[in-house]
């Protein structure tokens, strides 16, 4: 029998300790981040109560004047932290992103999964991966240089003239820094993840099932519609949720094209907005000048809310796209 040296045993123990730390670290990070934002938000949770979610006015108050007291919390006079504008901005921009990204992603995924092979397929797959890798600030810059002027000068007037009779499509067409620009930029950022996930799901649809459809005279579209899409349905919903979570959490690109609206809800597609993530990034500097600390607490509460929403969508998404076997097993 080989004698294991002391040194080897020591190394082994060290390795196991390291592996344990590595394995535990995601949970530790998540819990500590959640704990910090939760603790940091407690003062504003007490100060604002439910009004945090329902009010549109976000005002740090008079930072150099008197203080007010409410529910045992001290805040600058006139302070009010209402996140509704950012909640609405986050939801609307991310939903617009989905409306654009989902059809594009499904179309691309279908082509990647079923249509192209060989070098062209390889190239297209690489392109999707590359799009996923573009830094968000670069997309934001493209948004400012190209997208925003295009929306202001061409796209918004066009949409208004064609669809202006629909409530959210009419009205002032604005500067281009808008809900619409945010939605489009977000769509670009989530197309890769939805496409790649959907493609991976589509290639799992058994060829034999699809050939069965062709065999009874289905068109390629009917095979997709009646066989492939139903087969991947749950996973696909998960892929969309994954993209949605990402759209809601995205910061930099939105910050650059949203117009950074505060205190006012968007009136139409062309209104400036702000999202929770963008607003936090934008306001942290000035919030730190609040000696009472309340502005930072308020941003923490916003972060807590964002974390909860994105965590929830991600969990649901992961659960839906989890790998599973399909076929023989059927409910009684």
């Amino acid at each position: 029998m080989r004698k294991v040296s002391k040194a080897a045993k020591g190394w082994d123990r060290g390795f196991r300790v390291l592996a344990a730390i590595g394995a535990a670290s995601p949970a530790v990070f998540l819990v500590s981040i959640a704990a910090i934002v939760l603790v940091e938000s407690i003062p504003t949770i007490r100060f604002m109560g439910i009004h945090f979610l329902t009010e549109t006015r976000w005002d740090m108050g008079n930072l150099y004047g008197a203080l007010t007291h409410r529910n045992g919390i001290t805040a600058p006079a006139g302070a009010s932290y209402g996140a509704l504008v950012f909640i609405v901005g986050t939801l609307l921009s991310s939903v617009i992103a989905l409306v654009i990204a989902v059809p594009v992603s499904v179309g691309t995924a279908l082509i990647l999964a079923y249509r192209v092979r060989g070098p062209l397929g390889f190239l297209l797959n690489i392109l999707v991966e590359l799009l996923a890798g573009i830094p968000s600030v670069v997309i934001g810059l493209w948004g400012i240089l190209v997208l925003v002027p295009w929306i202001a000068n061409a796209f918004a007037p066009f949409l208004k003239s064609v669809l202006g009779f629909i409530p959210f499509f009419g009205g002032q067409t604005g500067t281009g820094y808008s809900l619409l620009a945010s939605g489009i930029v977000l769509a670009m950022m989530i197309v890769p993840i939805i496409t790649a996930t959907t493609r991976d799901l589509l290639v799992q649809v058994p060829l034999l099932a699809r050939e069965g459809g062709l065999g009874i005279g289905m068109t390629s579209w009917e095979v997709v519609r009646y066989i492939a899409l139903p087969y991947i349905r749950e996973g696909f919903i998960g892929a969309v949720a994954l993209g949605w979570g990402r759209a809601m959490g995205e910061t930099m690109a939105v910050l650059m094209v949203s117009g950074n609206a505060t205190n006012i809800l968007p009136q139409n597609l062309y209104s400036p907005i702000s999202t929770m993530a963008a607003f936090i990034a934008n306001q942290l500097d000035s919030a730190e000048t609040d000696a009472s600390g309340m502005a930072v607490h308020a941003l923490s509460e916003l972060a807590l809310l964002l974390l909860a929403i994105t965590l929830a969508t991600n969990l649901v998404a992961r659960w839906l796209v989890r790998p599973r076997r399909r076929g023989g097993v059927v409910a009684p």
Binding site: P206, A209, L214, G215, I216, G217, I227
Partner: peptide
């Protein structure tokens, strides 16, 4: 080809019912 396959039906080597139906 869609018309061809309506006139010339096919049963495959392995059973392949539509899995979600």
């Amino acid at each position: 080809p869609v018309d061809v396959r309506r006139m010339v039906g096919m049963v495959f080597q392995k059973p392949n019912p539509f899995p979600t139906m």
